[in-house]
């Protein structure tokens, strides 16, 4: 029963992805949406109930939100809409992390991903979006092949997951308090202290690298500024010279 649900979900999902990805035509998108909804329903029907009804309903809601917005992220034509749908994917993922009791990670996902990375990305989109919709956003690259490959890989994953789950032992009863903030901090700053310091160094190196990449071409605009506004360029060329 579960096998047929998963197989049907994979086939319909691959078709839905092919129809939904940008192909230069608008035809077939509503059929793709219908197929995708059926595929999502079949995939969720193959899952196991989680015990109490509210938990199962909440999990289905979060999973559907995450997967639907993920498909929207890769299938919308406008990159700004893609970024906004990705924000919804992040919120769904953070909800699933909260659902498992990983409070700090759920918060960190919202703050770092949705708060910092996504905003940086939207800034870059604003700076680097050509007028209107670019042709490369309206035409995907080998959509049928990629959808088939994705469905096949998901099939391999799900086969492994379901077959391993049949023989997996029931876990010992968990203490929910051991997932709160304090034990995680204690673990992080005792067992993984050097790794934390290295991660901080890596962040600093990435910051310096990003500044170096962007500041590489800063003096290019200097002659333009000096020809129009001499006083402003005299002031603004000083920090550029220091960067050089």
């Amino acid at each position: 029963m579960t096998t047929w649900l998963v197989v049907g979900s994979l086939v319909l999902g691959a078709g839905a992805l092919w129809l939904l990805l940008p192909r230069g035509r608008r035809a077939g998108r509503s059929l793709g949406t219908l197929l995708g909804t059926i595929a999502l329903g079949l995939l969720l029907a193959a899952l196991e109930p989680l015990g109490p009804g509210w938990a199962t309903a909440l999990f289905y809601l979060l999973a559907a939100m995450t997967l639907v917005s993920a498909v929207c992220t890769i299938s919308f034509r406008n990159p700004v809409y893609c970024a906004v749908w990705f924000g919804l994917t992040l919120l769904g993922t953070a909800g699933l992390l909260f659902f498992q009791g990983a409070q700090f990670l759920g918060t960190a996902t919202v703050i770092i991903y949705a708060g910092a990375i996504l905003v940086t990305l939207l800034f870059v989109l604003m700076l680097a979006n050509p007028r209107g919709q670019a042709s490369y956003d309206r035409r995907a690259w080998e959509a049928p092949l990629a959808a088939t490959v994705g469905a096949a890989l998901l099939g391999v994953f799900l086969t492994g997951i379901f077959s391993a789950w049949q023989v997996a032992p029931q876990p010992q009863s968990l203490d929910e308090k051991s997932y709160a903030l304090a034990p995680l901090g204690a673990e992080l700053f005792s067992k993984h202290l050097i790794a934390v310091e290295l991660a901080g160094t890596l962040l600093l190196a990435a910051l310096a690298g990003a500044v170096a990449v962007v500041a590489q071409h800063a003096p290019r605009n200097a002659p333009l500024a000096s020809s129009t506004q001499p006083t402003h360029s005299a002031r603004s060329s000083t920090p550029e010279a220091q960067v050089r």
């Binding site: 989680l50 699933l96 995907a140």
Partner: peptide, 26 residues
């Protein structure tokens, strides 16, 4: 145990959707 299965399925689906996006979008 059921939670482990469900999360793994959602995670696998998310990875595969991301893979399709990486392969197709330009």
């Amino acid at each position: 145990k059921a939670l482990l299965l469900n999360i793994q399925v959602v995670a696998a689906a998310l990875v595969c959707i991301g893979l399709v996006g990486f392969l197709t979008r330009r």
